[in-house]
């Protein structure tokens, strides 16, 4: 994972781990890297990594076991899927339709195209 400096790294870290949870690369109740391991691996400041992890704990994606480390919450994957599905239409489909309208592509044409992908 490479970070850019166009948005805060802690958000990029959180997004990266969420993607890993969604894709199944990180399983439920699986331990994630420690802050220091993560910082050393991605060559970032540990405080930044810790902030990303704290964000995920706040959102319920990760949970802490004191003295052991952080783990993926059992319900995390389901919860993330639900959220992303809700955002899918507003963040992906609507802008696509707006762009289609700007350049004169009919909705029917899009539906036909999507039908081909099925």
């Amino acid at each position: 994972m490479a970070f850019d400096d166009r948005s805060p790294i802690y958000l990029q870290i959180a997004d990266g781990i969420k993607n890993d949870v969604l894709s199944g690369a990180l399983k439920e109740d699986e331990q994630v890297m420690s802050t220091n391991q993560y910082a050393a691996f991605y060559r970032i400041n540990p405080a930044t990594a810790a902030k990303g992890f704290a964000q995920l704990v706040d959102e319920g994606v990760l949970y802490k076991k004191r003295g052991i480390g952080m783990f993926v919450s059992p319900a995390a994957r389901e919860k993330l899927r639900r959220e992303r599905r809700e955002r899918f239409f507003t963040e992906v489909v609507d802008p696509m339709l707006a762009e289609a309208k700007r350049i004169g592509i009919e909705v029917d044409e899009i539906v036909r195209h999507l039908g081909g992908a099925r």
């Binding site: 400096d5 166009r6 948005s7 805060p8 790294i9 802690y10 400041n45």
Partner: peptide
Amino acid sequence: LHEETDELRG
């Protein structure tokens, strides 16, 4: 300026 680095991104 004296800021958290992450605050400067974006």
